[in-house]
């Protein structure tokens, strides 16, 4: 057992008796890893505790909390998952009063797999593993360095492969709406593959991810066509940071900037005419 897994095991054992459950990953039959709610009634199950491959735990948390809003739970979350939880809290999708965060710090290879800029938690009081610095995102750099016609060609080709399985939306921890604009015929044409250009599906989704994408890359992971859609989200997140000084998942109080009035100096950074 790795050091990190052992420490995680210990951290969970410590809090488990006082809680209704701890949400973490469990290795199941055939070695398939999935989110699991460990309980004090069955502490022996912790032997099957798993870390990798990561699975979207916050989504499961939301489902549990909808059914049991008063449950006292802990959740094992990586940096991205913690950001997801913070954003869900800010969007009134869950409460934090009864929730303990156990921050699992990613290791270098994991961060590189996710091209992650922030593979660490910032809010969790209990921390497992050593926080490391973010890693580079070569793909995003590569795509953003393309010329305008090259970009157009690149994305045309990528979106051409989209089979509109809605997998990226379904797995996104931030897509918690009851109905979805992507299923509205006004915005996304139905019954046509490959999609008409420009891809309304991907562009509308990218706009909806503004100040919302937590950079977990679950969407890219789940995409059967390997579309690197998080590149768009990453670039927009950089703009939102530059223009409005907003970082998704960082601050519990800060509201998404596009909802609010302009602050001093912001207008000048939008590039709009005077």
């Amino acid at each position: 057992m790795s050091d990190r897994l052992t420490s995680l095991h210990e951290a969970i054992e410590k809090v488990l008796p006082d809680l209704d459950g701890v949400l973490a990953l469990k290795s199941g039959p055939g070695g398939i890893v999935s989110p699991y709610l460990f309980s004090k009634e069955h502490p022996e199950e912790l032997a099957k505790l798993a870390i990798w491959p990561k699975e979207p735990v916050p989504d499961t948390l939301k489902i549990i909390l909808r059914a049991h809003p008063d449950a006292k739970l802990a959740i094992v979350c990586r940096g991205c998952e913690e950001r997801g939880i913070v954003e869900m809290f800010k969007h009134a999708q869950l409460g934090l009063d009864n929730l303990t965060l156990i921050g699992l710090q990613c290791e270098k290879d994991e961060a590189e797999f996710c091209r992650c800029a922030k593979p660490f938690t910032v809010h969790a009081k209990t921390i497992v593993g050593q926080p490391i610095e973010g890693v580079a995102d070569p793909l995003t750099e590569q795509v953003s360095a393309l010329s305008q016609p090259e970009k157009l060609a690149f994305w045309k080709q990528e979106f051409e492969h989209c089979i509109k399985c809605y997998g990226c939306r379904n797995i996104c921890p931030q897509c918690f709406c009851n109905i979805c604009a992507l299923e509205d015929e006004k915005w996304v044409e139905t019954g046509r593959l490959p999609m008409a250009k420009p891809s309304m599906y991907h562009l509308v989704r990218a706009m909806h991810m503004t100040a919302k994408c937590v950079a977990c890359r679950e969407c890219e992971e789940t995409c059967p066509a390997d579309i690197p859609m998080a590149v768009h989200f990453r670039l927009i997140a950089r703009d939102v940071k530059e223009m409005f000084n907003y970082e998704t998942g960082a601050d519990m109080e800060q509201k998404p900037p596009q909802l609010l009035v302009l602050e001093e100096g912001e207008y000048d950074r939008t590039g709009l005419p005077h």
Partner: peptide, 12 residues
């Protein structure tokens, strides 16, 4: 029926 109660409209 469809409102998810995310409060974004309230802020805007």
């Amino acid at each position: 029926v469809t409102c998810v109660g995310c409060k974004q409209c309230i802020a805007s």
